[in-house]
Simulated scan of single mutants.
Amino acid sequence: MSPEMLTLRRGRVTAVVSRVEGLARIEVDGVACIAYPRLTGPVALGDEVIVNVQARELELGSGGFDVLYVNVTRGLELEADDGAHVMKLPYTPGQGAAVHGEEGRELPETLEGLPVVCCTLHSQIAPVHAGIGPGLRVAYVQLPGGALPVSLSDSLRTLRERDLLEVTVAVGACVDGDVQCVSAASALLWCKAEGLDIVVCGIGPGIVGTGSSFGHGGLAAAGAANAASALGGEPLLAVRASQADARERHRGASHHARDVLRLCGDRVVAAWPRGSATPGWLRPVEEVDVEGWESACADLPLSHMGRGPEEDGLFFAAAFAAGRLARSRVG
């Protein structure tokens, strides 16, 4: 069997566990499943569905559930958005047309110093936004490299509820943002045109990874940083760091940060929490006072590889540092 082949099965919805904006958590024949109503239509108890079971069968840590692929009962013959003609996931079984933010308008040619925080993991997003704090207009730009649907993230919903996030942008193969854009560059320019104060770029939950230096989804941060730099923005790197990860490549400052810096050179500045030992190779770097980060993050969903702030404070403090550094750059 080709490694790209879908593993599908037919079933029936036996429970609707919860519904939030853009996401339904259900059970199909008693097995946990998620559905994206804005992509595959509404779902209800008793519906006949086809689900993708491959991630669960592979026992992936962040993919331990099935994904509704098509709702045979009420998900056929769904219509595209009015005026949509640019395809997401083109020429795949999941292709669908969506209106894109670049269409029908002129975008600026420069970011004029717009701070752009570049993250390599989705679990950095909440502490980064906490570091930015309230009172500013902040966009989240999701890049391919993890989960593609923006609506999978409970963290983003919480940040919006706390008024720490204004708008989400889905780039490239990513889907279901408030706005869709073709590239990271055009997404950043769209944010500038809309008057956003700070942009946070990252990947969705569940990073794609091979255990190699350049075979991981976190490298999306390098693409965003290079685009921001070329367009006159100020890219800042949220360093993946850990005091508790058993894997040597992620202990201290992760190889994710090293890999991004190798591709960006001095075009991106890494943020690092003052008071923690700074790795000698982490250059260029700016140390940031992160006093009070625990209280600033107290009501946010903080979890990384099953660890919270008590088990791995360095991870969250380093991400918080990037947000605080970005706020200091806002004129």
Rank of each mutant, 00 (worst) to 15 (best):
V169M: 07
A185F: 08
F214R: 13
R327C: 04
L8P: 04
A257N: 02
V330T: 03
G331W: 05
Q180Y: 09
G306M: 02
T168Y: 01
L23P: 01
S186T: 15
H256K: 06
G46S: 03
R38F: 14
T73C: 05
R329F: 09
A222F: 07
R162L: 06
V128A: 04
W281Q: 00
F214S: 09
V51N: 10
A24T: 15
G94N: 13
I203E: 04
E311S: 09
D66N: 14
L136D: 06
G209L: 01
A187P: 02
E102G: 11
A230T: 09
V70H: 14
L143E: 10
L219N: 07
A55P: 04
S2N: 15
A44E: 15
I34T: 13
P127C: 06
A170M: 10
Q124T: 02
S303D: 15
A84Y: 00
L236P: 00
P279F: 05
E166A: 15
G280Q: 03
V117I: 02
A322G: 02
V260Q: 03
W293F: 11
A15T: 12
Q124A: 05
C201S: 07
P144Y: 10
A184T: 15
V70M: 14
V31K: 09
L45G: 13
V70T: 15
S62L: 14
S254K: 04
W293I: 07
R137H: 11
A228H: 01
R105F: 08
L165G: 02
L300M: 04
A270L: 00
H304A: 14
A220G: 13
V200K: 02
A187C: 06
P144L: 06
P235A: 04
R247M: 08
E77C: 13
I34F: 15
Q180S: 15
S155F: 07
P108L: 01
L237T: 02
L231N: 08
A277R: 13
R249L: 09
A98L: 08
V49H: 07
G133H: 00
V171G: 06
V72Y: 11
V53C: 11
T14Q: 09
V199A: 10
L302Y: 10
V20P: 10
G323T: 10
M305S: 14
D289G: 07
E112L: 09
E294F: 00
P284E: 01
I132D: 05
R329I: 06
D163H: 12
G218H: 05
R329H: 14
L261P: 03
D66T: 08
L148G: 08
G202E: 01
G75L: 09
